[in-house]
Simulated assay, not measured.
Amino acid sequence: MNGTIGAAAGAILALTWITLGFGAFLLVAVAMLIGAAAGRVADGRLDLRALTEAFRGGRSSS
C-alpha cells in the first residue's frame, strides 16, 4: 500500500514539474508534506510537542 501511495505521489510531483515548472513542483511538494504531517497528527502517530522540543534542542524521551 505504501509503495503504491509513494509511486502516485512521485508521479504527481513529476507531472507537476514537467507541466508547470520547478516553482509549482516545490509548492506541491510542500503541500504534500504538510498534508502527510497533518494526517499523522490526526492518527496520533506524530507528537507535535515532542517534535517541537527536539527542534528547540530539548532532551529526548529515550
Rank of each mutant, 00 (worst) to 15 (best):
W17F: 14
A36G: 11
F22N: 13
V28H: 03
R40A: 15
A14H: 06
L27A: 13
I34T: 08
V28S: 04
L26E: 08
T19P: 09
G21V: 01
M32D: 06
T19S: 15
A37S: 11
V41R: 05
A31N: 04
L26D: 08
V28E: 06
G23E: 09
I12D: 06
G39C: 12
G23A: 15
A36E: 15
A38T: 13
L27T: 08
R40F: 14
I18D: 09
L26M: 10
I18C: 07
V30I: 08
A29H: 03
F25A: 05
A31C: 06
A38G: 12
I12H: 10
A29M: 08
A38E: 10
G35D: 04
T16N: 02
G35Y: 10
G35H: 06
L15A: 10
L13I: 02
V28T: 03
G21A: 02
L20T: 04
A37W: 11
V30W: 03
F22L: 15
G21S: 01
I18Q: 10
L15T: 08
A36W: 13
I18F: 04
G23I: 02
T19I: 12
T16V: 05
M32K: 09
L27V: 06
G35A: 06
A24H: 07
L26K: 06
W17G: 11
I34Q: 05
A37Y: 11
V30A: 10
R40M: 15
G35E: 01
F22R: 15
L13C: 02
G21W: 00
T19H: 13
V28P: 02
A38L: 14
T16K: 04
I34R: 05
I34W: 09
A14N: 11
G21Q: 06
A31E: 00
A36H: 14
F25C: 01
I12E: 10
L15V: 09
G23N: 14
A36T: 14
W17N: 15
L20W: 03
L33F: 12
L33H: 11
G39N: 14
